[in-house]
């Protein structure tokens, strides 16, 4: 089996932000709750943005960093739970825009917020087995939330893309991966229903914490590692608080987690959530030789824990595309009514 890793990555966060307090005020939610969730603002996709357009932006940035020809990509996996088409792949649109078509695999994956993470596992496996040279994995969402639901404080728009390939070209080499899934209905959206529903507290211990801890402990056992062996740990970020709590339970210090936090400033981009955190760590703090834990989570429920070792190729690739922090600083604050219009919460007949 070939050794594999990340050869390029790219982020995208839309221009618009709404203050979480504004949402709380709109629906009579105690502003303390927003604070308790560690949230300030969330990103809002414009009227002309959806998961596909966000995915394209992130994937273009990833391609710029990977410095490969688009048609050398052999698989495009698009993880999202806000597919513009219920039936018709988003991945083919991205592949066509980027010039990856026609000789590629392409499909949309669904596993709540973890679909792109499974896409990464699949792409790594395809490269490892020599079936493809490179794989493109996108996690992008225009996350839905029922207006007034506590979920609305966090559900946001954004995405990240990763190009995987041989370790010789990688900025971070895959050391190992471990997956942990069960049938746990903590959060769902039925066919034809516009917003997801969830079991509130049930999304915590039996879902988020149980699965991430299962995956990370499994990975550490498999590789014979302990939290002290990792320089940074990135977890799925449904809010600003959960990743710190799960890290603490696993034995990771706050300092190893905080550099990855994007959700407090951009909201939970669902499939982009942990992956944007990974991108931010690569861009801001990771150094050659560092070991990084990445553990996305998806409701329903499951988690993957990846271990990566950073290489000396990281530095030169950072500047080849805008960073997560560039996007975080590029923002325009909007009102609830503008947000409601952009995310089409107001139904007009046309």
């Amino acid at each position: 089996m070939k050794s594999v890793g990340i050869v390029g990555w790219g982020a995208y966060i839309p221009l618009y932000r709404i203050a979480v307090d504004e949402i709380a005020k709109m629906w009579g939610i105690d502003p303390f709750l927003a604070k308790a969730l560690g949230m300030y603002e969330k990103a809002v996709g414009g009227l002309d943005e959806d998961a596909v357009t966000i995915g394209v932006e992130a994937a273009m940035n990833a391609l710029q960093r990977a410095k490969i020809k688009p048609d050398s990509i052999g698989a495009v996996f698009f993880g999202t739970e806000s597919k513009p088409y219920a039936v018709k792949p988003s991945a083919t649109i991205v592949a066509e825009v980027l010039g990856i078509t026609p000789n590629t695999m392409a499909s949309d994956l669904e596993f709540a917020c973890r679909a792109a993470s499974e896409g990464l596992r699949a792409a790594f496996a395809l490269v490892e087995s020599g079936q493809i040279d490179y794989g493109l994995v996108i996690g992008a969402d225009t996350a839905q939330a029922n207006p007034g639901d506590v979920l609305e404080l966090t559900a946001s728009s954004g995405g990240a893309a990763f190009i995987v390939g041989p370790s010789s070209e990688s900025v971070a080499i895959l050391e190992g991966v471990f997956t942990f899934i069960t049938d746990t209905p903590d959060f769902w959206r039925r066919e034809g229903v516009p917003y997801p529903f969830h079991g509130e507290g049930f999304t915590g211990d039996p879902a988020y914490f149980h699965h991430i801890i299962g995956a990370v402990e499994g990975l550490m056992k498999k590789l014979g590692l302990s939290p002290n062996d990792f320089d940074y740990a990135i977890f799925h970020q449904p809010n600003g608080k959960f990743p710190l709590v799960v890290g603490k339970r696993l034995g990771f210090s706050r300092e190893k987690i905080i550099p990855s936090l994007v959700t407090p400033y951009a909201g939970n981009t669902y499939n982009g959530s942990a992956l944007l955190g990974f991108a931010r760590v690569l861009e801001n703090v990771a150094k050659p030789g560092d070991r990084i834990l990445v553990a996305p989570f998806g409701s329903g429920a499951g988690s993957d824990a990846f271990s990566f070792i950073v290489t000396d190729k990281l530095e030169e690739r950072k500047k080849l595309a805008p960073t997560v922090d560039d996007y975080l600083s590029n923002k325009k604050i909007i009102s609830y009514s503008e947000y409601a219009r952009m995310r089409q919460l107001i139904k007009i007949v046309r």
């Binding site: 414009g46 002309d48 943005e49 959806d50 596909v52 357009t53 394209v56 932006e57 273009m60 940035n61 710029q64 513009p84 088409y85 649109i93 825009v97 595309a321 805008p322 560039d326 996007y327 600083s329 590029n330 046309r350």
Partner: peptide, 28 residues
């Protein structure tokens, strides 16, 4: 790359290119 035409609830979506101001730090 943006969603240019939403069509109707049932039909296809029309994608295409828009242009945005170049904001130096996030420009491709």
């Amino acid at each position: 790359f943006r969603r240019i035409r939403d069509g109707d609830h049932f039909g296809v979506i029309g994608y295409g290119l828009s242009f945005r101001p170049i904001r130096t730090n996030v420009s491709k």
